[in-house]
Design a protein around this nucleic acid. Structure first.
Length: 224
DNA sequence: CACCAGGCAAGTA
DNA sequence: TACTTGCATGGT
């Protein structure tokens, strides 16, 4: 288990090496929610194409998208992959938006952080990571986002077992760090960027990984 | 060609 | 409860 100081040092090391991330800064909360669903197990570049298609049809609006035919929606988001599944998930989320907020996305901010998270989790197609992404990046509430990269990086550096569960890993961060939205956003973004370059899924070596200075793992094979 | 991408739900044992 | 499988496009 990483000590509290480790978490801060790891953050500082990544930030110093990579610089700030500026993720999802200028988009509307609604677009952030769409992106959170569309990016499930999918490269972000493909998600941008899907969102651009929706924008081209003037559908980046909850009511307009709700009124869009499912097959048409599926066709527009096709570049994001799993397009039939994701069209259904977007529709589930739009029903949720209608029922919970009358399509006024900002109204969801009235919920307490944990309440909002739990309500989002009840929507079919919104799992823990997607819910936390929405809570943190769309609604600016402090819910730490954990993903496959987080487990892989911390696992490869010997800080946790690599098959650590989502909630366990999330609690590790939230119990240690102050409830700071900007800190959570930047920490997650830095972990993803670090994972992308220094901790690939297979035969990925962490040589010169930004975390090495903190953990002492200079090079670490993912295979062994 | 292999591998991977900011997962999730449903089915099986 | 703990695996396994289907979903699918596009970049490296």
């Amino acid at each position: 288990m990483p000590a509290l100081a480790d978490l801060h040092n790891i953050y500082d090391a990544m930030l110093q090496r990579l610089g700030p991330s500026h993720w999802w800064p200028a988009e509307t909360p609604f677009e952030v929610c769409l992106g959170a669903i569309l990016t499930q197990n999918t490269n972000w570049g493909n998600v941008e194409k899907a969102i651009a298609n929706l924008a081209r049809h003037d559908l980046l609006d909850p009511v307009k998208l709700f009124e869009t035919d499912g097959e048409k929606m599926a066709e527009l988001i096709r570049p994001a992959g799993y397009y039939r599944i994701k069209a259904g998930r977007l529709q589930n989320f739009l029903f949720f938006l209608r029922d919970e907020a009358g399509f006024h996305v900002s109204a969801l901010r009235d919920y307490e952080t944990r309440e909002l998270r739990e309500r989002l989790l009840r929507v079919k197609g919104i799992g823990a990571e997607t819910a936390d992404s929405m809570v943190l990046y769309a609604f600016h509430k402090p819910s730490f986002v954990v993903d496959a990269y987080t487990a892989r990086i911390f696992g490869r550096h010997g800080l946790v077992r690599e098959e650590v569960g989502y909630e366990e890993l999330r609690s590790l961060f939230m119990d240690a760090l102050p409830e700071d939205v900007s800190l959570y956003q930047e920490y997650h973004a830095l972990l993803v960027r670090t994972g992308k370059w220094w901790c690939r899924k297979k035969h990925g070596l962490c040589s010169d990984c930004p975390l090495s200075a903190v953990t002492g793992h200079e090079v670490f094979s993912g295979a062994s």
